[in-house]
């Protein structure tokens, strides 16, 4: 069948070998991933949570930053699809002394894995590897740039709870400057038609973030007012030494998500957080553990979304790369 003359069929696959960011996906591709994730979620509810789909495929989880949550989620997703998985964790310090990222990747590549799931502290590291590797590159977080599977699982969770994404008011509150989760979520949510507000102290709002189609405010009440979704971003304590705000206490009183602030949102608001949570810094425990919180749903959905991504990429064309 010649695809150029085939009638317009519903989208059933991704054109790419890589998932480098939400930026490279069309809205239809995002929806395909979310739809596929629904089927994958069902697999996770079976007694035997494993299907043979990626049998014989080797997937390397190449993590240059510590990440229990994302790495575990990918690993479970890979195992549920019967891929052979290999975890390579490299402390950044040893890399600076020795091998370059490119050399490390080429060595792994020589062992012919089907995919490399990459977490790296440098923005654009996945683009670099995608240019030189035959293996598909899945971005598990690159610097401050993107964390596409997190945004996909967030969207999946929102859609599961709200039935839609278009038209929802989503408020994203926290350290916007250092957040790849923010950047991927903004891209995805605006792509699917949400009304996205971002909020944080002025010192942590990236210059020109409005260019991504969001409204930025420093008034948390304004951001949360009437919101369908409130997404909290982690305050990375280790990055705050640059005096972006005076103290954690002051941050919590000014921007922390308390029950009183949540009350300004819609009655059926959902509260999200990519984790790990700093209780009493960006979010009050009563909110994190409260009835509106879907934080643990996000974690559960992460596996299904990553299964969908891996499945769809495994069937993707070998040498096309999404930006």
């Amino acid at each position: 069948m010649d695809p150029t003359v085939a009638p317009a069929a519903p989208l059933t696959g991704l054109r790419h070998k890589d998932l480098l960011g939400i930026a490279g996906l069309t809205p239809e591709e995002v929806v395909l991933i979310l739809d596929t994730a629904e089927a994958m979620k069902e697999v996770g509810q079976r007694a035997i949570k494993k299907v043979p789909t990626l049998r014989g495929k080797t997937i390397v989880n190449l993590f240059f930053e510590a990440s229990t949550r994302t790495r575990t989620s990918f690993e479970i997703a890979e195992k549920r699809l019967s891929a052979d998985t290999l975890n390579v964790a490299i402390a950044t310090s040893s890399v600076t002394k020795g091998e370059t990222l490119v050399d490390t990747a080429m060595n792994i590549e020589a062992m012919a894995p089907s995919m490399i799931v990459l977490r790296h502290a440098s923005s654009g590291a996945c683009h670099l590897l995608a240019r030189i590797c035959r293996a598909g590159i899945v971005n598990a977080g690159d610097g401050l740039h993107e964390h596409p599977t997190q945004a996909l699982l967030d969207a999946f969770t929102i859609r599961e709870r709200k039935g839609r994404i278009a038209g929802l008011k989503v408020a994203i509150v926290g350290d916007l400057l250092h957040s790849r989760v923010l950047r991927s979520n903004v891209r995805l949510l605006t792509k699917l038609g949400a009304d996205v507000w971002v909020c944080g102290p002025r010192t942590l709002i990236p210059v020109g973030i409005e260019a991504l189609g969001v409204r930025a405010t420093t008034r948390v009440d304004e951001a949360v007012e009437g919101a369908d979704v409130v997404m909290m971003l982690r305050i990375q304590l280790e990055r705050m030494q640059g005096a972006f705000f005076p103290s954690l206490r002051e941050y919590f009183t000014t921007f922390g998500m308390t029950e009183a602030r949540v009350a300004r949102a819609k009655d059926d608001v959902i509260i999200m957080h990519p984790g790990p949570i700093n209780r009493g810094v960006e979010i009050a425990s009563e909110v994190a553990d409260g009835p509106f919180s879907v934080i643990l749903d996000q974690v559960a959905n992460g596996v299904a979304v990553r299964m969908a991504v891996l499945y769809l990429l495994a069937g993707g064309a070998e040498h096309e790369t999404a930006a």
């Binding site: 069948m1 629904e38 299907v51 789909t53 069937g315």
Partner: peptide
């Protein structure tokens, strides 16, 4: 779909869409 033996050989046609098992 997840049990097919032709996942990687779908170049002849569109990749099969995964649907829910119920």
């Amino acid at each position: 779909t997840l049990y097919r033996d032709d996942l990687m050989r779908h170049q002849v046609g569109p990749q099969p869409l995964v649907r829910k098992t119920e």
